[in-house]
Design a protein around this nucleic acid. Sequence first.
DNA 1: ACAAAAACCGACTGATCATTCGGTTGGGAC
DNA 2: GTCCCAACCGAATGATCAGTCGGTTTTTGT
Lengths: 194, 194
Amino acid sequence: MSKRNAILAAATRLFSRNGFRETSMSELSRITGAAGGTIFHHFKNKEDLFLNILKTVQESILSEVHEHNKTAEYRNGMDMVEGVVTFYLHLAGSMEDQFLLLHRHYPYQMAGTNPVCRSYLESIYNGLLDVFEQGIRMGIKDKSVITTSPRNTAMVLFAMVDGVARFNTYNLYHAGSLYQDLMASCRKILGNEN
Amino acid sequence: MSKRNAILAAATRLFSRNGFRETSMSELSRITGAAGGTIFHHFKNKEDLFLNILKTVQESILSEVHEHNKTAEYRNGMDMVEGVVTFYLHLAGSMEDQFLLLHRHYPYQMAGTNPVCRSYLESIYNGLLDVFEQGIRMGIKDKSVITTSPRNTAMVLFAMVDGVARFNTYNLYHAGSLYQDLMASCRKILGNEN
DNA sequence: ACAAAAACCGACTGATCATTCGGTTGGGAC
DNA sequence: GTCCCAACCGAATGATCAGTCGGTTTTTGT
């Protein structure tokens, strides 16, 4: 199991940082110390290796989010959404490679032809959107949030947060300095007046 | 000039839809009808071809935005920002290939080592952000917009709009159905109460 | 009309790639 | 002790790639 895990770990880094096509199996072999044949013993081919990585990305992101959601306590729905936004930004920093992989184009391209890949991606995005929506619906009930379409509002909110996270990824602007403005915008979108 | 333009046009499509690495010069040669040597007569190498494309992407996007900004008339700053958001979404649809190229990871990777590439990207994003900021500043003056940090608000707004546009690109969710919610969120962020 | 330059051609090259295969090793079951 | 299977190895393979080069055609300036 040791070599297999080493391959998975190194491949996650390489696929994220360099991309699928520009990661070579020989480089992966050199880095992990595993022979070329060993990689193909554990994984049918390069695409299969990628799918295995995407699967663990899905599992780890969703488990992190759900874990956070269980332990965190919120005063109301608005508070929950703010907590989720903050946690998402934190997660994008601590699981940099995994998010980098999701911010690449290859997974979505592969999803066009590979249903398994598509299901992983949908699971990730639906899971994340669900948490946003949950907070919004709670906020509607306790009057801390005002909106008529919880799902759509969740999507706009998510697009905003993920867009800011991507600014970081691209090294164009620093997301940290946007944090205050992002939270303020979030509160305004949700309609709380203070 | 004919062959050169044909190469540029076809390469823009291929780089956008398939990516830099997964676009081969032989495929480009086959599609355009230009011999392999002809491509390298017009462009030093594959990277040089890419930079030429990115340059025209920058020029065409910025000229479209500035053109729109000149002809459009706004009642106030809030109106202008709304117009810019709508126009940006429209542009992302009508210049699909160009935006797809910008939504890929390769340009930003190349920008890490190639200053020319980085300057093109910065020019595009700064140009777009400037237009958002312009509307916000106008809105502050005419009291249609309330915010203390125009540039940061512009960035958050841009991240949101671009994030929604990317949902489309990834074929995960349909941006059209989010338009109303996006505009509503935009108005709320800018602080206008109606 | 003609010479020089620019556009164009396609076969060739060496490097790199994902994947295969025949064989070796090591540890658990009986 | 020996059978078995999974983990592991690394040389070999055929395909594909970006880029080169020597030569031909077309355009342009005068």
